[in-house]
Amino acid sequence: MMIELKNIVKEYHLGLETVHALAGIDLNLDKNEYVAIMGPSGSGKSTLMNLLGCLDTPSEGEYHLNSQNVSEMSDDELAEIRNREIGFVFQNFNLLPRASSLHNVELPLIYNGTPASKRKELAEEALTKVGLSDRMHHRPNELSGGQRQRVAVARALVNNPAIILADEPTGNLDTRTGDEIMDLFEDLHDNGNTIIIVTHEEYIAEHSDRIIRLRDGRVERDEAR
């Protein structure tokens, strides 16, 4: 089992009021699954995504990622897990604006101490995989939206992480470019990667093999397709 969530609860305190963003989630994901997480706003999908991405820890429950219990790790331990196990793709790309594509893709490798020559090799390989071998030295503002998201996908891949976590990856792209990105995810899935996409678009979710629908912090439906 790649991901095991056991009775995950996440509470936020707003003044005297306690908000249950997640009210007990049990979830198992296997290696090489392609999952979409859906739900209306306020359903807890962002919170779940942050927990899955090890950007946050649950108030209650256990989260095992690649048989490591990450629910009670410190900030720095989480940083290490994120670096090793998670590849992020964000809606707004979140690239460093003043760095080249190559440097952006190298970043995760910098933080795990990969030597410079190896770093460059791996980053070039990842950029080639997403079809940007001719855009390595361009900065984000010299690239189109689709190309930017490809750089982000390359960055997510470069460390060979356990899961690729994409949060509305096509949200800022037109339909055609969005489709191209979704094709890219399909390829990655075919190559053995585990992919989780958070989206509110049915047609995006339809690319996946399994749709998990959230409502009010609980799993409303979990259907394989």
């Binding site: 720095d76 290490e80 994120r82 670096n83 460093l96 970043l107 995760p108 933080y111 795990n112 960055r155």
Partner: peptide
Amino acid sequence: TREIGIRKALGAKRKV
């Protein structure tokens, strides 16, 4: 701030 967020998400520890 955002750059720091990106770096942290990608695995930069506090000390870094």
